[in-house]
Design a protein around this nucleic acid. Structure first.
Lengths: 198, 198, 198, 198
DNA sequence: GATGAATGAGCGTTCATTCAT
DNA sequence: GATGAATGAACGCTCATTCAT
């Protein structure tokens, strides 16, 4: 099973090719290197055609990240089994996030740039994330209700356990740490201590 | 005592005004909205004058963030007392970071945009941060040697305890959570569990 | 039959207009006065449009002079008949150069400015000239082999006979001399003495 | 005896330094690379000071070339002996021009750029040249009157004999020909044939 | 006389977007 | 639907010149 993303295989062929080229361009040249002209060339589509499928650059980028997030969520939740013990659910998710980010090293940077660009609407994003990751929210809810997790707001619990994985992977990719399985397991336990009662 | 930054009050007056305007422009329009022409207008300075004080846009941005980081480090470390008990040192720092980010709500976004821009040099940054926050590194080192903290790499301990503060403040500012003193204290304890042995 | 150049009448209409405006601008304001903004205005074209037809200013200038040189060569060699006696070939060419330079008084100055500008590549130019003026080179070769011309390097013979025409026309245009037919005929004979044996 | 120019050793020290730096800058970076800021730096003088000695850039350049031409004329006429036979006078001058241009390979290019720049006033130049090279004009006049030279206008005779030296040296420096003593002597004789009766 | 900080018009170039075909 | 030529405002940057000190 690969963690590499394979996307955009639906709807209009042109639309898919454009979004695919968007990803490729961002990966190769960074968020700032995304110009409509380059995008048209790489998509094999005329410049004007971009505007048949997307209102403007903003919309294109928004839709690109919407689809990315959708796909990422599906991939991360594949194998997420709510019937497992809480710790197993959490630990599995932690590893899937780690593996995905290591397999897609540009993803996090690209996402961060998007989230701090003028295109980004934080409220819209929050709603989508809650929908996409509803099972994860449910897991935290269950843990609180069962008295296993501390009675902190769920977003705090998420930060204490999952939000730091991208930060750790980034340090790993830059060579500041080595996030091997052993270190990961220790960190997972550390986070588990953070969110659990007692 | 205010946590609001008051910077650039040294060297040439023009240079200060330019750097101040840089901060204002990034806060108002985002990193992408920083153009030399706008900057000149807001500084009340001619376009060419910018180049008397900075070699080019790269240099200007680099120097802007160098000064910002210097000032932030000084402010965060003010009152950081290595003779206090470990927990007190850590807790005090946690609160100062929180208070600073709440008082300077654009700081984190601006920093993140910079760090994912083509101007950014991660190696140089890493070195500077270790110098600026040397006492904090020493605190973690001491905690490990005393057997209080888990024997994890220091960058991991940093992530588990301090790197999440910006994420939490961001959620606070967006209204997903309320990071009041009570929640903060609970979170501080949670992080403390994460990094401590046992 | 006019000696005035009529160029750029092929390919895209816009491209022609740009090159025509280039010539006009150089004639009116000199090589140094050629800016892309002025060029766009005079061409009746938007600034960005220039870059649809030419990669950058260098390329535009290079292509402008390539086309000019091509057209000039064609015009100067029109009626150049290798079957005529050597003297007739040479004399005819001399007059066509004179007439052309008088009809296009800015041509020489423009050419000289180009050849001393940073855009200019002397090697490339030399090759092109030898190709364009191949029949003239052949004429000199033939003269040497027939023992009519002195056994000097061809470029020296060219200088002794043809390179001075622009200098003379320049003096004529500035009013230092009057290069009428009589003076021309005398000068042609003088040059002929210079290059011929005995 | 060197043919290298040593100039500007008179009048105000600052003025000399500025003109010296002008020559150095043109030699190193070409005519186009001459900016007032660089010139000030290289002269060791403040930008504003340039305008104490010269009205503007035009004037500075004009005065620079005036002094250059003066010095060049003096150097070329050193040893020019009107009492020698005509051919010896002419031959000696030819060689001094050749040697000077080879020793100062940038001189010709710089002069040509100047003469085709907007700073240049051809009438003024013509008058100065006739004054500076008065003995040479006299030589040609004498040759005509003695019936040795063809009764052509003097500027034509100058072109036929001396104006081509720079062209030949340029071809020499670019490697198209080798202007050694032998070739020079042959060319001198060729030019002599061009200007002499018979 | 001498300074050098300051100016601002101008430079070559890019790019999101439009629209006639 | 699809094209791609065309736009023109905006970009980062340079430079001859001025003027308060």
């Amino acid at each position: 099973m690969t963690m590499k993303l394979d996307l955009f295989k639906s709807r209009s062929d042109k639309r898919s090719r454009i979004l695919e080229a968007t990803g490729q361009l961002i990966a190769e040249q960074g968020f700032h290197g995304l110009s409509m002209a380059k995008l048209a060339r790489l998509s094999g589509v005329a410049a004007g055609t971009l505007y048949l499928y997307f209102d403007d650059k903003d919309e294109l980028i928004r839709q690109y990240y919407d689809e990315i997030h959708q796909a990422v969520a599906e991939q991360l939740l594949q194998g997420f089994d709510r019937s497992e013990p809480l710790f197993e659910q959490y630990r599995g998710l932690w590893f899937r996030v780690r593996d995905f980010l290591i397999a897609n090293p540009d993803h996090f940077s690209s996402k961060v740039q998007y989230e701090h660009s003028p295109f980004f609407d934080p409220l819209r994003q929050q709603q989508r994330l809650e929908e996409l990751f509803d099972p994860v929210m449910a897991m935290f809810q269950q843990g609180i209700e069962a008295g296993v997790f501390k009675p902190l707001p769920i977003p705090v619990l998420v930060t204490l356990s999952l939000d730091l994985v991208p930060l750790l992977v980034q340090k790993h990719l830059r060579g500041y740490i080595v996030l091997d399985v052993e270190t990961s397991e220790a960190t997972i336990l550390a986070c588990w201590s953070a969110i659990c009662q007692k």
